[in-house]
């Protein structure tokens, strides 16, 4: 899941203020680009006298490949829900038992025992969100809580729509629109998905990331995209609105896990506990503009995020969201074939 302008992201490092050698220890965090609040890191460094180094990645696959190759020197990684079980099965994660940590009591009930990490034995919640549609309502005034906007674009939006080059998320959203499962080898269903996407593509402007800027600058009028990015874009373009497709939409959650071959295990566990405290979780959300799954963190967030439609779905649409697993290799092959066909 690549929520950011992947190619533009560069690794950046934050070292502790003052002399790093004075710190008691080190912590190497391997996280998505443009995702880590510098304030959070500074606070952690000061509180525990630990020097933190952050390195960026831009997709789950990249992170997995790099860690599997070994010799990475990282202590913590932030895999998405659909990848956590792969990490566990590959034996890459340490069973650090966040569920027994002091701040675990703040974790919201819906996230305290997720299917991808039963009992939260490996991961502490970082951020979660959804994959819906961002629409410029000054251009299209109709119902935006539907993915029909993208798959059968209305006249006003034709040629002004973006779809991110995110194979799994897009195909799964299309499957949900047609009433299918997110991982399916039902050929009839897949044929319908392919035909629908191929037919819709001429009405799309681009298949690109970077919509925070482009929706904000009105270069694009609508896009399948991630809620927090649309929230950011809305600060530039108040006409923007974020829709939760009633036919079904994807949810995702990224969680912090300790690597099996981490060198600074104690500091890594401290960090897991640290981010489950409401005031700290709020720092993460304030920076990245996504919800975090920690009870009581909202009150530490800026006013414009509290109760914002883009951060958490309204009740009547919350039920349409669902988490998806990583599909089996055979299904992924089919999706890749459809995707290549779409972009040929």
């Amino acid at each position: 899941m690549n929520r950011f302008l992947a190619i533009a992201s560069t690794a950046f490092f934050i070292s502790s203020f003052g002399n790093p050698s004075l710190a008691d220890g080190e912590l190497n965090l391997f996280n998505w680009g443009d995702y880590t609040s510098p304030e959070l890191i500074e606070k952690f460094e000061n509180q525990y006298n630990v020097s933190v180094t952050i390195t960026d990645y831009d997709s789950n696959a990249t992170a997995l490949a790099k860690i599997k190759a070994g010799g990475h020197g990282f202590d913590l990684v932030v895999p998405s829900a659909n990848y956590v079980q792969i990490w566990v099965q590959e034996g890459l994660l340490l069973e650090s038992r966040p569920d027994q940590m002091e701040n675990f009591k703040y974790v919201k009930k819906q996230f305290s025992d997720p299917v991808w990490d039963p009992g939260r034995r490996y991961t502490a919640p970082w951020l979660w969100g959804s994959f819906g549609v961002g629409v410029d309502t000054s251009i299209y005034g109709g119902n935006i809580n539907t993915s029909e906007i993208v798959f059968y674009p209305p006249e006003e939006l034709s040629g002004k729509i973006n779809v991110p080059p995110e194979m799994n998320d897009v195909i799964k959203t299309a499957l949900l629109y047609l009433g299918g499962d997110t991982c399916t080898d039902d050929k009839e269903m897949l044929r319908k998905v392919r035909d629908m996407l191929v037919e819709a593509k001429p009405k799309w402007l681009s298949m690109d990331y970077g919509m925070t800027e482009k929706l904000g600058a009105k270069d694009v009028a609508a896009s399948l995209y991630w809620n927090g990015a649309v929230f950011r874009a809305k600060q530039e373009n108040p006409d923007l609105s974020y829709g939760y497709p009633q036919e079904g939409y994807l949810l995702w959650m990224d969680s912090v896990a300790v690597l099996a071959d981490a060198k600074n295990i104690e500091n890594a566990k401290l960090f897991q506990n640290f981010i489950m405290a409401p005031e700290n979780a709020a720092l993460i959300s304030t920076f990245a503009k996504y919800a975090n799954g920690i009870e009581g963190s909202e009150e530490f967030m800026p006013d414009n995020m509290k109760g914002a439609l883009e951060i958490e779905a309204p009740e009547e649409l919350a039920g349409s969201g669902q988490f998806s697993e990583a599909c089996s290799p055979d299904i992924t092959k089919m999706y890749t074939a459809i995707w290549t066909e779409l972009q040929k």
């Binding site: 696959a61 990249t62 194979m167 799994n168 092959k333 890749t336 995707w339 290549t340 972009q343």
Partner: peptide, 12 residues
């Protein structure tokens, strides 16, 4: 881009 797709999301 096709090559990148295979090494990334395509897992091939």
């Amino acid at each position: 881009n096709l090559i990148e797709l295979q090494f990334g999301q395509g897992s091939n």
